[in-house]
Amino acid sequence: MKEPHDDRIDRALRRLGTAAPREGVEARIVAKLEQAAQEKAPGFFSLPRLAAMFAAAGTLCAVIVAGSVTHSHRILPVAPGVQLPGISQPGVGAASAARVAPQPVKVPPKERPRSVRKTENGRAVISPDAKKRGGVAAPKPLAAQPTPEAPDTTE
């Protein structure tokens, strides 16, 4: 069965299907192919610019971090105390890495005002030179509730 508008559809389709290209289309296509073939094959130095920029930025960051870590290792003072050789962990860990002291830590002289606390019979002995206020610090009782039973702390 023929549709009522078949002729018009046929005419439109025929017109569409018989479109002719502009003159010289073959020459233009060949020229385009020639141009494409003459382009250099992509090599290492013709990577996309964005990738190259990312690589450069990454390298720069790595250099900065490595330099910073090296610098930190160089200037970090070796604190006296326990040094654990062999437990040092690899990687970037300037603060946590345990390092062996380059030389034994000297015992401080006696006169040095450090670690003056000494023990005697298991009790702490206060240095006679220590200047401390007499008595034991205790909270003051409230004025409204006197505590007569409170021990006398003043001697």
Partner: peptide, 28 residues
């Protein structure tokens, strides 16, 4: 085949320059 391919491209593009570009890309 360039003329045939042009007509195929033109049937969708309905634009001469676009159709020619499409044929060029096809040959690429």
């Amino acid at each position: 085949y360039s003329s045939t391919l042009y007509r195929v491209a033109y049937s969708v593009m309905r634009n001469s320059a676009e159709a020619e570009d499409a044929v060029q890309e096809a040959f690429l």
